[in-house]
Design a binder for these strands. Structure first.
Lengths: 213, 213
DNA sequence: TTGACATAAAATGTATACATTTTAAATTAG
DNA sequence: CTAATTTAAAATGTATACATTTTATGTCAA
């Protein structure tokens, strides 16, 4: 595998596990030495992770591990609310039964592997959502959604610790598929909005509570 | 100035002027030789322009100059419609008279320099819009809008040739400022939606017409 | 002729070396 | 002691060189 991709995954994981703490400043040389790769590779990964919101620019020298805030989480969810129902609305008429089946398979997986680490559950969860939007026929919209997901994904580590949000969402997910299968597009979009709002509210509430802790 | 930024601007301009034609495949080496820089610089710029939609990935080797399509333009405008009124709604209460003044200055500039090349007029136009959204307090939303603008900007070269759209939009721009100054936020957002819709329709129509030409 | 395989050419990925800029330290003048 | 200037250290930008992968070419056997 390309070293670029290896480092990309490894660094992301290490940030997720807080091996590199939020607000910590990292230099190219530091990371190149630590991960035993050249600075070229580090630079590529740095730019990619900056695009995805995991790293922030830090003046002329170094990059900064992105922090967490309730305000940011709220904003990201606001953007999801603005775009995901639209994507679903556009995709719904084009959704095949095969795709809906795939989506349900993902739900089964999610239900089965309750012991999976947060980021993996988050990934499955996104695969489910992504599958429903896939057929919307708007590549740029999908690209924006992927970008938003990457940014939200940073919070998933937190999410697991405090929120038993997955249980309540499992029912909503299943209901979503049911509505889509029966062609109730508008109702599905409405439910999706509720679903994202609820998850958003829980996450924001949690972040506000632990702010002072 | 950094060579990276020089090449970024130069390459973008050359694509805009169709020195590199849409769908043409460019290699790192080719560009490095042509612009007399190292491949490292080319790689950086390549990644940036791919993010901004000016270049597309092309398998394992090379990058492809992005093409134009009515469908893509329509999608980009749809996304603008979904996000810009929201940004304006959030920013409107926080807009200062000083900012509104700045915005009007930009309109004056636009009115004065009618002979400017399309991409420069487009840039001024965006600065105007951007200023109105600036105070929305949502950095990620602004980032998405900047990204969308970059992608729309590719079409501005076309826009000028065929559309006398700037004249009709000048009035709408001024009216927008007036509404905002008097605190009619909802009306301003509505007008903005109309404004983007109209410009979008003209661009899409033009692209559809010239498709066969 | 065709198709598979070997080989050469070309493109990208990666590392190292050098240049430039930035940052921090240290020294010295006031 | 303070502040400003100089100087050294460190970090990034850039180029060159090397390694790996990909692609195209060409040869040979069936």
């Amino acid at each position: 595998m390309l070293k670029k991709q290896q480092l990309y995954q490894q660094l992301k994981q290490d940030i997720q596990l807080q091996y590199w703490a939020p607000a910590q400043v990292l230099t190219q040389q530091q990371l190149a030495a630590h991960y035993a790769v050249s600075r070229i590779v580090v630079r590529d990964v740095q730019q990619q992770l900056m695009n995805e919101g995991w790293l922030d620019a830090h003046g002329k020298a170094g990059m900064q591990v992105a922090g967490f805030s309730a305000a940011e989480a709220e904003e990201l969810c606001l953007l999801r609310l603005q775009l995901e129902p639209l994507a679903l609305q556009l995709a719904a008429p084009a959704l095949s039964f095969s795709q809906l089946g795939q989506a349900e398979d993902l739900l089964t997986q999610l239900a089965a592997h309750t012991a999976l680490p947060a980021y993996q559950r988050g990934e499955l969860n996104w695969q489910f959502h992504r599958l429903l939007y896939q057929s919307c026929g708007k590549p740029h919209l999908l690209r924006l959604l992927d970008l938003l997901h990457q940014q939200v994904a940073r919070y998933l580590g937190y999410q697991e610790q405090a929120l038993a949000y997955t249980d309540t969402s499992a029912g909503e997910h299943q209901q979503l598929v049911t509505l889509l299968r029966s062609g109730h597009t508008a109702a599905a979009c409405h439910l999706l909005t509720e679903h994202i709002s609820a998850a958003s509210a829980l996450l924001v509430q949690y972040l506000k509570n632990t702010k002072g802790a």
